[in-house]
Design a protein around this nucleic acid. Sequence first.
RNA 1: GGUUCCGUAGCUCAGUUGGAUAGAGCAACAGCCUUCUAAGCUGUGGGUCGAGCGUUCGAGUCGCUCCGGAAUCACCA
Length: 595
Amino acid sequence: MEKLLRIVIKEAVASLYGADAGDDLLQIQKTRKEFEGDYTLVVFPLAKISHRSPEQTARDLGEYLAREINAVSGFNVIKGFLNLTIAPAEWVTRLHEIHGEEHYGFAAPGPDAETIVIEYSSPNTNKPLHLGHIRNNLLGFSLSRICAAAGARVIRTNIVNDRGIHICKSMLAWLRYGNGRTPASEGMKGDHFVGDYYVLFEKKLREQIEPLVDAGSTPEEARENAPLMLEARQLLLKWEAGDPDTVQLWQMMNSWVYEGFDVTYRALGVEFDRIYYESDTYKIGKEIVLRSLAEGHLIRREDGSVWIDLTADKLDQKLLLRSDGTAVYMTQDLGTATIRYNDYRFDRHIYVVGNEQNYHFQVLALTLLRMGYDWAKGLHHFSYGMVELPEGKMKSREGTVVDADDLIAEMTATAEEMSRELGKLTGYSDAEKKNICRQIGLGALKYYILKVDPKKNMTFNPKESIDFNGNTGPFIQYTYARIRSVLKKAEETGVTFAAGEAEKVIPNAKEISVIKLLNDFPALVTEAASELSPALIANYCYDLSREFNQFYHDYTILGESDENLRSFRLKLSELTGRVLERGLFLLGIEAPERM
RNA sequence: GGUUCCGUAGCUCAGUUGGAUAGAGCAACAGCCUUCUAAGCUGUGGGUCGAGCGUUCGAGUCGCUCCGGAAUCACCA
């Protein structure tokens, strides 16, 4: 509809003023609620071409449009704004067109589709997932679906930070204090089990640091020289040297963690196409660094450590290899990026990683470019804000970390409680109830996180648990469930879409509002993809639900005696349900048939 | 100190490439279930868009300065 207006207004400008109106001069937007009309042309920019006042220009254009195309049934001019009214019948036609499109809003990847690698989650194997990871996973997964829906070829990937000093700490603690215990023997999820040994290591380390500090060491020195820390470093060296016992222990403990992560990922409903392990990629990283060093892009200091000098780009010198030759975080990310480029020849590589690592990714892309890898221009750090508690950052020491598994369980429990209070879900089996409440609880959590601008830090208050009313996931799910319920009833009572005469329907204002929103969906998916913004989809789903609920409240669907009108409303409802389901899909939220 | 990000109603957040009188939800108050799901709908109150200057026909949006907050600047990841 907007496209049509754009074309005709261009014609109008050409015919009335003999000038060519560029796209940037044609500002078409939706008319605000308080004015009459559907679309508004902002005329100010055109006044320069027409050499008339904005008001006169608007009137000229309005008359032209109303005369030349049937779709425009009227117009009004207020200051420099030309408000165009679309003929109601036009919206009915549009509804029928949309209804016939099977994959409405979703594009299939064409031959020249962009290839996007998107990395998210990226956990350390020494800690279970927490609320921060939930934001990361939800953003990453939703972005992958949005980009795919916009026609890109998307590879969802994860890098597991399965090597390094932190893993050695857990291993060491388990060797020392584990007494052969396993997740199975303790009845624990593997990631929590291993995480506990990491915490134990830190605790024992602190016990060693204290006397050293009392004896006159600085806290930094004491930490570096404590026996446990020295031992952990030894273990890392042994691991990098491939010591069989160390590698075996490492494999065993990691496998426990992976089993635990898988449970959480399944519960969250996120997936990956390809998982990379840092233990595989850091070696390539080392190779690249050494090659680049030989080519003269890098600096080797006297102690043997390797650095890149980015001071020319207003950054610092950055370590790429330690003096003992072991890899750092940057080393493996250089390797991982290179491997992925060789695997997929991506056009873009999106890293979903918190804003605390802005500097890291700036350095990563610059370093690769400096090394001569031109494809590094396609690296993009999707930087999102931290999740904070009302009292500030989550701190593991103070035990304020909101555990992912706990939170998911709590959300489901809250959904069950509300469902019971509201007297919903009678006549369903326990398993069905459980599943629906899981969908609702997760829907509330996911929507709560995805509706906000990813750039911003967000506050999560565990005491005032996440809402289920108003601008929430369950509100949208509820709207969907209502629609399904109507459609089910229509089917049972044999009401179907009447053929043919539906064009004669003249829709009311509420119906037109809903159709307008439905009409926006494909453009919105495209915009969400180019802006990388799940929040756009979330807010759209909310608007559509609200608009539909008003219609639903004011008018009857199945009770309508006029067969054409009933059929039209049924179609409107069916399509709204379909679009809501797709919108929720893009957010990774399930749409329950009943709730 | 350098760099980056944030600041909109009591709270949580929207606000399109700069467009008309800045919008939702929560919380508070007042209504609406004999009728397709009331996890819904309707109404009331609530604002120096952190402050100032500038650009513009027009600034919550763009630029500069300042104030407040966050992140980062490791042989941590």
